[in-house]
């Protein structure tokens, strides 16, 4: 039994079952509120949309990050390496909300700018970690692979990427967790996510909505982290 998956999953399910019937509890906490439970969109639907946006954006980000990292670590593209590294490092100092704001003029309001911002921002940790991981592959292993007749593609697939997996996975975990949090901000530009009750609660002076959204986001983030930790252990374990 993996408690790092089971506990957040249980918490998430319990919240989804309890929140629709939580009006008395929130009424007791915030007696001044007329509508103590968020009802505009079902909580289950919010979680599904939120998770969907995160998964789609993260999957794209991981693929793009890995592809770019693999490309710039090839000898023929060596001149691109410092640039890619700088983008990965400096890019992460830009707050995600800035990326979000910049993508609104391109794609308008709603889910699309959120997806774009999450994807662009999610590429950076994957890219940085994958470059670091690929560059730390022992040169002996590469020399041996060349000497035994590995082609460049096969060498990347069988030797370099597996050896870089620990670094890559730490980048993927960081990327996904940041995306879970950042997706809530997507509600400020009109995307329906778990950020919707939070934003509406903040704007409408309704702390109960904020608590409800925050609890679900926290449970979802921990669930993703637990799942990714499990994936990480699977792919780095021996027996290959």
């Amino acid at each position: 039994m993996n408690w790092r998956i089971a506990l957040p999953a249980l918490a998430l399910v319990a919240l989804l079952l309890w929140l629709p019937h939580s009006a008395p509890a929130f009424h007791a906490m915030f007696p001044a509120l007329g509508k103590p439970v968020y009802l505009r969109t079902g909580f289950g639907q919010l979680v599904a949309i939120h998770a969907g946006i995160v998964l789609l954006a993260s999957a794209t980000a991981v693929l793009v990050g890995l592809a770019v990292a693999a490309l710039v670590t090839r000898p023929f593209a060596g001149s691109l390496l410092p640039t890619a590294n700088a983008v990965a490092v400096v890019g992460q100092t830009i707050p995600p909300v800035a990326v979000l704001v910049l993508s609104v003029p391109l794609l308008g309001f709603g889910a699309p700018p959120t997806l774009l911002a999450l994807t662009v921002y999610g590429v950076l940790p994957v890219l940085g970690q994958a470059i670091a991981g690929l560059r730390s592959v022992p040169p002996d292993a590469i020399a041996a692979a060349d000497g035994m007749g590995y082609g460049p593609w096969r060498r990347l697939k069988d030797a370099e990427l597996p050896l870089a997996v620990p670094a890559i996975m730490s980048g993927v975990r960081l990327s996904v967790i940041v995306a879970v949090g950042t997706a809530t901000i997507g509600s400020t530009v009109g995307a329906t996510t778990l950020g919707s009750p939070i934003v509406e609660g903040l704007v409408g002076n309704n702390p109960a909505y904020v608590v409800q959204g925050a609890l679900l986001v926290a449970a979802l983030a921990m669930l993703f982290d637990g799942l990714l930790e499990w994936v990480e252990r699977r792919v780095t374990s021996r027996g290959r």
């Binding site: 022992p138 000497g147 007749g149």
Partner: peptide, 26 residues
């Protein structure tokens, strides 16, 4: 072709260069 040639010639180096993520048998 270089890869075909190399697969037909054994190669061992001082640093060994075993793949650290693979078992001895592999």
């Amino acid at each position: 072709p270089a890869t075909d040639l190399r697969r037909g010639i054994g190669y061992a180096i001082q640093s060994v260069g075993l793949f650290p993520h693979w078992s001895v048998a592999r």
